[in-house]
Write a protein that binds this DNA or RNA. Structure first.
Lengths: 203, 203, 203, 203
DNA sequence: GATGAATGAGAGTTCATTCAT
DNA sequence: CATGAATGAACTCTCATTCAT
């Protein structure tokens, strides 16, 4: 759970090795899913020996974890990007858009990586996203409210979990733009509800 | 996806065997989680031979699936029950309460079973809950709205997915009653939002 | 090895059961080969319970054996038939023709049944064919010769084994009529050779 | 048919491992036959782990196939050897002698390996022997004849198949030298017959 | 640092056969 | 006679991981 990576790759060659391993993992996930993903196959695809792989990652889970962190970093970058580019767009929409478009890969792959993130860093990492989200939204709330932990949980998890569910059920064939709209409505009406309950009209 | 159950138990003895297998599976899940759950252990705990187990279930997944369907049936029963007992309670709250209290077992177990349901019956079974939920809520909507598929998806999946997430992160230690309240707020404010958008005041 | 069948079916119904089992076995062999042939599947296809199956056959091998005996009986019948119908045809050709056209079923099935006959009755049953063949041919030889056992072995086994090989290599796509001709040449030239060695010209 | 060997052994150690596996397989075949031959037993006898075995052979069949190829190579070597050593001996006799004495192991083992060769490489490998045989004999024929494919089939398969049958029926207790003689007669009289039909006297 | 041969516990699964009903 | 639920030894095969080279 705690210390996952073994050797911190300082040299360029090592960095490239790590890169190759993660890229190979991603490709294999896309091609044949989690059950076919074995450390040996990853090493082979990455063009390194299985021994080398284990010099950079303590176990299979660590690889998935690293890859999922990457996706998650992408999302964060995307959020910042979007907010800077379209200052007029609401923060909520920016975040939702980032969550929808940030991660690359098929639905299945996203799902797998999101679960890996879940498993390994429940507290560590997920909370980073958690709080990043909260920070972004907090501008709109600008007050403290009771039930804070549960409400915060809802604010931070609703979109991620619904996108996960949508990814898991591709046969529903939901329209991304419409879904984005509805998610914005869902969150914004909840925020409004929170506001009306805990920060009654100042007028 | 394919054909999951093998032999249809005609004799009473066979029915009891299936029962024993599912009960054993549940116990083992509670005790030691998914990774320790092997077909041999299940058979042993159930007091049947491994061969017998394979006469009724095509593989390990099929057992999990059957068990999860059971849980899901329980939830549906609970919903009906609650609605009948407390007609005054809003349908939304009744359903949320059922989803929270219906399934027995630890958080982990619920999570595992919910995932099994997801995997195997994504469309088949999950949608039953989906539409059961919709039916219950539809009284409150009493109108058709565009964006129906996406909105319906949100209505039916939000609570389940958030409870799943909460189960996966027990360290957040959310207060169930407060969470229930907030989920009700979340959904009800979204329903209100839908109403205001698509069924403007008749006056 | 010795006593294979359990209950001798005297009643018509029992006879029909045995029939059904053998027919089912044949069908399954044709459809999916030996490895997929299980006693349970045979019983199912025959429309009897597995218990019933075991009342008529001591084990799986016994079923194959009975079926192969049937094929072998067919061949014998065919030989008699052909000899009676075409008295002008040489005995050798008649036998070869019977061996080629007697057994029904695909190449693979013939192969399997021929092997079953081999295994179970190496001495018992195969020799029946063996001696039947010899008897038919002996008219042409009409003398005793040394090396009798080895020569007889060759006379009785060559055609069967070559047809077996031809069945096992369908990709050679041999022409049946030409093959028949060549087999006749093969055997007849050998018989002539035997004659010239051991029964020098009477003139 | 598909891809049989997995890892190509690059290091000397690996080569030795493959060797040990094949040797172990041969020993076990000799000792207890095909039905008792399991991959686990092979690995144990070879002194390697079951995992190692599966790094070099995709399944049990692949091991049998490799072993049978070895036998087949031995035979070819033996043929060359015999022809070189005894140029006076007819090619036919040399080949028959090689087929009888080339392969080591009991009758049963030979039978099993010959069947394995049949199954897996029906066309690929068997034909190598096929054509090797033909080449050797062709000196004696020195002409083209119609019915080539069927006659060639007979020339190349008769001896192998009869020896197979003889191996399968040890209770016949045929005398090897006499059998060799008779096989020579069988083939040579057929060759003569072919000659007289297709290359009539040049006079 | 890199390699890749070796490991081996243990997973899922099959199927001929028995025997209580 | 027929049934079919139950058996369980035995099998094949996988894969994360180690460690001598």
């Amino acid at each position: 759970m705690t210390e996952k990576s073994r050797r911190k790759p300082r040299q360029a060659r090592a960095q490239a090795t790590v890169e190759a391993i993660l890229e190979a993992t991603f490709q294999l996930l896309e091609e044949s899913g989690l059950t076919k993903l074995t450390t040996n196959r990853i090493a082979e695809r990455a063009g390194v020996s299985i021994g080398t792989l284990y010099q950079y990652f303590s176990d299979r889970e660590a690889i998935l974890f690293a890859l999922s962190q990457r996706q998650s970093d992408n999302v964060r970058k995307k959020i910042t990007e979007l907010v800077l580019e379209n200052p007029e767009t609401s923060a909520v929409r920016a975040i939702i858009r980032a969550l929808m478009n940030g991660p690359t890969g098929s639905h299945q792959t996203r799902l797998i990586l999101s679960d890996a993130l879940f498993r390994s860093g429940g507290s560590d990492v997920m909370s980073r996203q958690h709080f990043a989200f909260l920070d972004s939204v907090s501008g709109q709330l600008s007050f403290d409210f009771p039930h804070g932990r549960e409400a915060a949980f809802i604010l931070t998890h609703t979109v991620v979990q619904l996108l996960r569910a949508a990814a898991a059920e591709p046969e529903l064939d939901l329209n991304p733009e419409v879904l984005e709209d509805e998610l914005v409505h869902l969150l914004e009406s909840y925020i409004e509800n929170l506001t009306s309950r805990f920060a009654p009209a100042k007028s």
